[in-house]
């Protein structure tokens, strides 16, 4: 199964396997990555699953839809060029090895 690394606010890395189709938000919650809340449940209606893409096969990421782009303006942590909503990224083989940084919990 493809793997993702969550880089935590305290600097630790947490590497986990996700099943195909599972979103990075769901993977974070299931693996106890505490700072990811996913209040809206993956509808791109809140920005509580905001992450920064740090490395890995970034070219394989899905492009950002308008909803996600607009919602990132609401994120509690600063929006950067590599900001994404983790609920909008579904795991697949091409994304194996992706690294995302989780912002400090607000």
């Amino acid at each position: 199964m493809p793997r993702v690394t969550y880089r935590l606010p305290d600097g630790r890395d947490c590497e986990v396997e996700l099943s195909n189709g599972q979103s990075l938000m769901e993977g974070a919650i299931r693996n106890g990555i505490g700072a990811i809340l996913g209040e809206c449940g993956g509808s791109a209606m809140c920005a509580t699953c905001h992450v920064y893409i740090e490395g890995g096969p970034v070219g394989a990421l899905p492009s950002m839809c308008d909803d996600e782009d607009a919602m990132l303006e609401e994120a509690a942590a600063e929006r950067l060029g590599n900001s994404r909503l983790s609920c909008q990224i579904r795991m697949n083989a091409a994304l194996d090895g992706i690294v995302v940084r989780v912002p400090e919990e607000m």
Partner: peptide, 26 residues
């Protein structure tokens, strides 16, 4: 979470465990 109940969970797109806010251990 309740919002997915009448949306993605009902469609079968979201597994049960993904509805939980936190694992028991948390």
């Amino acid at each position: 979470r309740r919002p997915p109940l009448s949306k993605s969970f009902l469609k079968g797109d979201t597994p049960l465990e993904s509805l939980y806010f936190r694992q028991k251990e948390w």
